[in-house]
């Protein structure tokens, strides 16, 4: 029988080759090669994701300069212990699925960098409350999950804390509060009327009135205390 010319297109030939049985490879060879390729691609993917967690990557956008300047004046940047929390420590979850979700949602940051939503100090201030509110909402909803990667009530020795701090932390445990209920503005400047906005965040998350009240109780005094300690 004479060979007929192969009239299939390139894509069709590739498709048929891809789904055709291997004629020259053993099962073992295919499995080992697939396993090694899997490690290579997964490792490469994971490594690339981790690169986007570096401080250099986060502040490579012009619009991040304001946040960076504010963060560099805080205890999370410079402190007596030499432990530093960088952007991703507070803003990127450790758990895989939450991390991928955060990375996909961060696409909006690239968009706003490109369209220049906050590319001047005036525009930044205009959007500060909105941006802060989005982060507070995320932190409140996750019970300050990213804070708790380093800070944990179970590991705190209240006897080593100042009296005011120990009493506030005990109140937080008793009232089922979370870190962000008091520690807003810990790494970035607080916008005006932030407390009213935080109330709205609690309302949007359908917090019960009692827990809202507890979260807001003595809030201004706590903020004053926290600010005076950091100065």
């Amino acid at each position: 029988m004479a060979d007929r010319p192969d009239n299939r297109g390139m894509i069709r030939r590739f498709w048929d080759w891809f789904w055709g049985p291997t004629a020259v490879l053993s099962v073992g060879f295919t499995l080992i090669a697939g396993f090694l390729a899997g490690i290579f691609f997964w490792g490469g993917f994971h490594w690339s994701v981790e690169l986007t967690n570096t401080e250099e990557f986060c502040v490579s956008c012009h619009t991040m300069e304001t946040n960076l300047g504010e963060y560099r004046e805080t205890i999370h940047y410079n402190n007596h212990s030499g432990v530093r929390a960088i952007c991703s420590d507070c803003h990127v979850p450790h758990e895989w699925s939450h991390k991928i979700k955060a990375k996909i949602m961060a696409v909006k940051d690239v968009y706003h960098e490109m369209v220049g939503t906050i590319n001047t100090p005036e525009k930044y201030e205009e959007h500060r409350l909105q941006m802060a509110s989005a982060v507070w909402r995320k932190m409140k909803a996750s019970d300050s999950r990213e804070c708790r990667n380093c800070h944990n009530f179970d590991y705190m020795d209240f006897t080593l804390q100042e009296v005011r701090a120990a009493s506030e932390h005990q109140r937080a445990i008793d009232s089922d509060m979370t870190c962000i209920d008091c520690h807003q503005g810990i790494a970035h400047r607080l916008p005006p009327s932030y407390l009213e906005e935080y109330e709205k965040v609690l309302e949007a998350l359908s917090m019960t009135p009692s827990s809202r009240r507890l979260a807001a109780a003595d809030h201004e005094a706590t903020q004053f205390y926290l600010r005076s300690r950091s100065e």
Binding site: W96, S97, H98, I100, K101, K103, I104, M105, V107, K108
Partner: peptide
Amino acid sequence: LEIFGTIGGNALG
């Protein structure tokens, strides 16, 4: 974005 992020996290999880 929340939904897209959740879908992506689950697809790669």
